[in-house]
Amino acid sequence: MTAPAEIKGVSKRFGRVEALRDVSLVLPAGELVALVGHNGAGKTTMMKLMLGLIRPTAGTIRLLGENPAGGDFAVRRQLGYLPENVSFNGVMTGRETLAFYARLKRAPAGSALELLDRVGLTAAAGRRVATYSKGMRQRLGLAQALLGAPRVVLLDEPTTGLDPEFRQTFYDIMLDLRAGGTTLLMSSHALTELEECADRVVIMNQGIMVANGTLAELRRKAQLPSRIVVTMADGIPAERVDSLAPGVAIRRINGHRVELICPDEDKIAVIRQVTAENAGVADLEMVPPGLDEVYAHFLRLHNGPRGEAS
């Protein structure tokens, strides 16, 4: 069976702007892929191409086996989409809005009510959408994206404007979907949140895919240094570390805490050194490079000596 979504050598120009340059990407079934990048990196363009809202300048796209811009639109019954800054017609109630979308997807009306409950909008279902807060609209947007048990779900910045107390529920829903074999593509700025649940990370910069792999792979590729935060025992000055681990880059946090920055492969050796007997170390904390740092690294790599993209 082919992958739910395949993008091959796709470029997209808007006049003089090259929004996407030669991007190839396969989204396998049951994976949650994080799409990360600055504004204007091409994330929304990629989703719109996958939906057939715009057509590629070059390359081919297959979504559920069809060309999204010209194939059989019936395959979109198995697709869910949450646009960035989702908006609905304000004069309809939440229940009516979801019922309308359920009819279009031929999903049973009962499933719409269940979804309203799942996103916590049952109490507000009879109110006009115009009275909803940003977070409630976002939840309604999420509910419509989940109608009809989709096989592919595209979420454009789903967590912006989401109420903090709903975030956990949101990630629970995502993980449930993935467990059911749904492919999820999620773009976000909240890199640290995606760190825990993303199977794969795709980093975009200025229309180019600069990285694509599991977080562990990207970490390895980036060869980012590990950081070890060392807390000295009472009465022992932080300077002591200098002699314990010679040649290791050290950043002083305060009088009795320092941060050691070393290449990943030296990690164990350094830990041995600082935990030697009578070293006077009270506590030790490992800080692996986060998605934020991996992301920054790949952007630096791509932008080269010119430094950060503006």
């Binding site: 939906l51 809202l53 639109f73 800054n85």
Partner: peptide
Amino acid sequence: ERGTLALLLSYPIG
């Protein structure tokens, strides 16, 4: 402009 069409056209409708 209101952004409602992009969502509608992501549905199985021509």
